[in-house]
Design a protein around this nucleic acid. Structure first.
Lengths: 224, 224
DNA sequence: TAGATTGTTAATCGATTAACAATC
DNA sequence: TAGATTGTTAATCGATTAACAATC
């Protein structure tokens, strides 16, 4: 493939899940440096701050053509721009939340998302007590209104925070209405057409694996 | 190492992070089968349901001695017991939450945790408007009361849901008071003594990686 | 220039998978 | 028994890392 082909950043056909998960971590750290007025940072320093090896960070960046030139540390502003572009944060997308129990409300109230180009445009629930109630200026509607809303507003991402029993049905309605990606908090293995990207966020997995590691540490005093 | 050494399940010294993260997923699926009255399940079927290869599931189980014998499918009840034991869910642990904004409250209200042996015993916040308020029968106390509380109640796990700026200080106070593990929701790279296990739960990473995958899918029509 | 630092490659490491003997 | 299925090993695959030439 030619070196400078067309658009500033071509997404490589194959990027590992591990790399994808590290990109937002790099971005967060770089934005924190930016806030502190840091202009340039080496792969060694940045990597140490997010607990990865410098070689890994450079290898990750290189998959998108690299962010600098040999001998020159990274320009913080430039790296932030590149990462935001790579992750797609530069172009705002419309999102909706299905399920406004405690977790759904917490997500809806998380203001940071707006800054990263996640436009929350709709909230849906099946509970009549919640329908009509507003969060951050958005009125909760009945879940039956969701499919039409997705089509009309061009909603790309759906967030599922409904109880496990309802998750598959909600996911199917999202997929049927043309949604592109689903961020699923319900501890259920959803079945979806392959054109819809699924990202599971099983919080219980987090605390259970923490507990396993604590147990292992106490038992063998280090390592797992 | 001898085959049947002592306690029913010895935790191997080295279990990969990937395996650790899959154990709770197996457990959830098996519990769902249990609820549906299923008594036995093959590695092939169980693996398909959680979208892993059967060989991987067997390899995961084998790290803890295996859950059955050649020719015999897994006994669902037995596998559930083994997994709960392996993960340490059989022995209840005391947990606290620091930070009761939207996210902290959502976690506090998540009832499922109690069933998995996570006893929520304390809630702490710095905001005087929240102190004194109760969630699920637990009164929110001032964060300054946290260290003594950890020692007195033998709290093992701390959940950090405070703003990023406050996270490092809260984490240090938890660590100083003898906590064993921290489940951190603040998008910050915490520095902790190695005797404290840290599990980061950066929700933004989830939605950002979802967005990246959606973008990649639209650009190259498949693969990443 | 000399020291620092990136991009890049090849070697290493570790996780996944296929294959099959042992067992029900 | 014959078919199904696990435990187990070795082969494969992919991710991480060390090393260094190129460049500032």
């Amino acid at each position: 493939m030619a070196r400078n082909d067309l658009s500033p950043t071509r997404t490589p056909v194959k990027v590992s899940e591990a790399t994808i998960q590290r990109l937002p971590v790099y971005l967060y750290r770089l934005q924190a440096l930016q806030k502190h007025g840091v202009r340039r940072v080496s792969s060694r320093d940045l990597a140490a701050q997010v607990r990865v090896k410098a070689a890994q960070l450079r290898y990750d960046f290189r998959q998108f053509g690299g962010f600098s030139r040999p001998g020159q540390p990274y320009d913080v502003d430039h790296a932030v721009r590149r990462l935001r572009e790579i992750l797609g944060l530069a172009v705002p997308v419309n999102c909706i939340i299905a399920g406004l129990g405690n977790l759904g409300q917490a997500i809806a109230n998380y203001a940071q998302f707006a800054q990263d180009g996640f436009n929350l445009v709709g909230l849906f629930d099946i509970n009549p007590k919640l329908v009509g109630y507003s969060i951050r200026g958005i009125t909760i509607e009945d879940i039956d209104a969701m499919p039409a809303f997705i089509g009309q507003r061009g909603v790309q991402l759906g967030i599922i925070a409904v109880p496990p029993e309802a998750a598959q049905s909600v996911a199917e309605r999202m997929a049927g209405a043309g949604i592109r990606g689903i961020w699923n908090f319900a501890p259920v293995d959803l079945r979806l057409p392959p054109r819809v990207v699924l990202h599971d966020e099983f919080l219980s997995v987090g605390i259970m694996s923490l507990r396993f590691k604590v147990k292992a540490l106490l038992e063998n005093g280090g390592g797992f």
